[in-house]
Design a protein around this nucleic acid. Structure first.
Length: 573
DNA sequence: GCCGTTTTCGGCCCGACTGTTTTCAGTCG
């Protein structure tokens, strides 16, 4: 299998960690971290770019040296430099860096003073009370290391955005009732609509005598108060989610909001522009010397560094600064651009609501159309439809459409793509439909080559419209299946097919970088909820967030089209 | 290691909180 961008990112990240433990120049370390991030979120395969002999040193933060290293990794699958580093410094130390409270200096000290190289040895050293004797450590640090180690070793503690929403809402309501509260906002990756959220950053402006910090620490769902100060406090909730509250002065609210919305990489890039213009930018404002010259709004902050306002979803330092500079930022798709939903289930298969209930709920959301796309027969677990039951549903939809004003239920199916690339229902029934979402549900573990071939074959069918949940991943539960999306997207564009951005919060399939890839290739996406109930039609907002993170504009999205235009686009050939 | 309407060398974002100190290093975001 060709080297993936994530593999390259992982190697650079390990190099950065080991260099840092060895005490290398911090800016050199940062260069590797930046490279890991840049390559990891590249909308194209770096391996293909190397193959095509493109100049990788044109990428931001990638110079001649790192470009050469990327090529080396692509060609050999490894990096000599990393192997040399690992001969000097145990690779296992990487895992110790993930323990909260341990950074490069402490990991290095533990290794050199006590010979600790992994969690097990660290635990033994802590239990024998050896850590407290190392310079710079003490009893408390030793104790907190033991606490961290006793936690279940979870790789990633990030939670899906929807879960974060559910934790945030009651906490915000509670904090609003503190004394002297003026404004309260959730910033961080939550505001950037990232698919998963590592912690909640809550910003507060309030009067001087507010009790918000005390109240925060007393919140009933708090498991542990990590730190508590007058402007910043951190707790861990019983669910394991970390929450930070920061108190900001009103005059610098925009600067604070900008600062705590991040991303870190975006902030660094903006602050650097500030330095170039002799400004200092921090969470309190934009300063010239000691004088605050801006910061009441985010717009002011951008204006001072010579940029137009940049939407939170774009703030990842993935080219948005450069685009802003050239005044070529995308005009991001909005919820109100969406005219309908193209993937929904009913009671006929595994949905919870009737056809009519689903249609009425969609109409209530202001849509013009809803495609009913129940499963096909292969999905027996969900009582998938065979030819005759689908024919019955088609008639039922005709009858319903006669009753509905200004709204159209589209006849559809979520038809399985079988292992040989054929579709699970014959053409003579598929041709009776308005829209066919084609999905892989079985044989997900084929090789990359076979899986890609399977979907490419399916797209040859003239009734193939939209590839449903294109990678099959379920966040935190199921890895995406191996598939060459770049090739699929190019073929989809040629064949007049589309890909779905499944808005279900545990799927969000495609990712933000996939969306950007689709835009660059020129294939349109359908943002669809895959709703199995009337309530889940509202998952559209998560899909919109993801699409915005992928730089999509209304024109890049299939279901921003009027019914008439949509029907034309769905007719292939 | 990267990068350049101040620069091809000398810079590289900024502040809060904690614990171990006795003025600050380390970590985190």
């Amino acid at each position: 299998m060709p080297i993936q961008n994530a593999d390259i990112a992982e190697i650079f990240s390990r190099v950065a960690n080991l260099l840092e433990i060895e005490g290398a120049n911090q800016f050199r370390v940062r260069a590797y971290r930046n490279a890991a991030r840049t390559v990891g979120s590249l909308p194209r395969n770096a391996a293909d770019m190397v193959e095509a002999e493109e100049d990788l040193s044109k990428l931001p933060g990638i110079g001649k040296d790192l470009a050469g290293k990327i090529a080396e990794i692509v060609k050999t699958g490894s990096l000599d430099q990393l192997e040399e580093l690992e001969e000097r410094t145990p690779a296992e130390l990487n895992e110790l860096m993930n323990i909260s409270g341990l950074g490069p200096k402490r990991v290095s000290a533990l290794y050199h003073e006590l010979g600790v190289t992994n969690r097990k040895e660290l635990k033994a050293a802590a239990e024998k009370e050896k850590i407290r004797d190392v310079e710079g450590f003490g009893k408390k640090t030793e104790q907190s290391i033991l606490e961290e180690l006793s936690k279940k070793e979870e790789g990633e503690k990030r939670v899906p955005l929807m879960q974060a929403e559910q934790r945030a809402a009651p906490l915000i309501d509670y904090l609003k009732n503190s004394k002297g509260i003026k404004k309260i906002t959730v910033a961080g990756s939550y505001r950037r609509c990232k698919e998963t959220v590592g912690d909640l950053d809550i910003l507060v402006t309030c009067k001087k005598d507010s009790n918000v910090m005390d109240r925060f620490a007393d919140y009933e769902d708090v498991e542990k108060v990590v730190s508590k100060g007058s402007t910043r406090s951190t707790v861990v909730l019983k669910s394991g989610l970390q929450v930070d509250v920061r108190v900001l002065p009103q005059v610098g609210y925009g600067a604070g909001l900008h600062y705590f919305t991040g991303s870190k990489a975006h902030n660094i890039a903006v602050r650097k522009r500030g330095v170039d213009r002799k400004f200092k930018i921090n969470e309190y404002g934009v300063f010239k010397g000691k004088e605050r010259v801006a910061g009441k709004t985010e717009e002011e902050v951008y204006e001072k560094v010579g940029l137009p306002y940049i939407e939170p979803e774009l703030r990842e330092d993935r080219g948005e600064i450069e685009a802003a500079e050239k005044d070529s930022l995308p005009n991001l798709v909005r919820q109100k651009d969406i005219r309908g939903d193209l993937h929904a289930h009913t009671k006929a298969t595994d949905g919870q609501a009737s056809l009519e209930e689903m249609a009425k709920a969609a109409k209530k959301l202001g849509y013009d159309y809803l495609a009913v796309t129940d499963h096909s027969k292969k999905v027996t677990m969900a009582k998938g439809l065979n030819e005759s039951r689908l024919a019955d549903q088609i008639e039922e939809i005709d009858r319903l459409n006669e009753k509905l004003d200004d709204f159209r239920v589209l006849k559809g199916i979520e038809v399985d793509i079988l292992e040989d690339g054929s579709l699970d229902l014959p053409d003579d029934i598929l041709k009776e439909l308005d829209v066919r979402v084609c999905s892989v549900h079985y044989s997900q573990n084929l090789s990359r080559k076979k899986q890609t071939k399977r979907v490419l074959k399916a797209m040859e069918n003239p009734y193939f419209n939209i590839l449903g949940h294109p990678t099959g991943r379920i966040i935190g539960q199921r890895e995406p299946y191996e598939i060459d999306l770049e090739e699929i997207m190019k073929q989809a564009r040629e064949n007049g097919c589309f890909l779905e951005l499944n808005a279900e919060p545990d799927r969000l399939d495609l990712t933000d970088t996939h969306c950007k890839m689709a835009k660059e290739i020129g294939v349109k996406l359908a943002i669809s909820t895959d709703a199995h109930s009337t309530a889940s039609l509202e998952f559209m907002r998560f899909g919109i967030g993801q699409a915005r993170r992928g730089w999509l504009e209304a024109d890049d999205v299939l279901n921003t089209r009027s019914l008439g235009d949509l029907m034309k686009l769905l007719k292939r050939a």
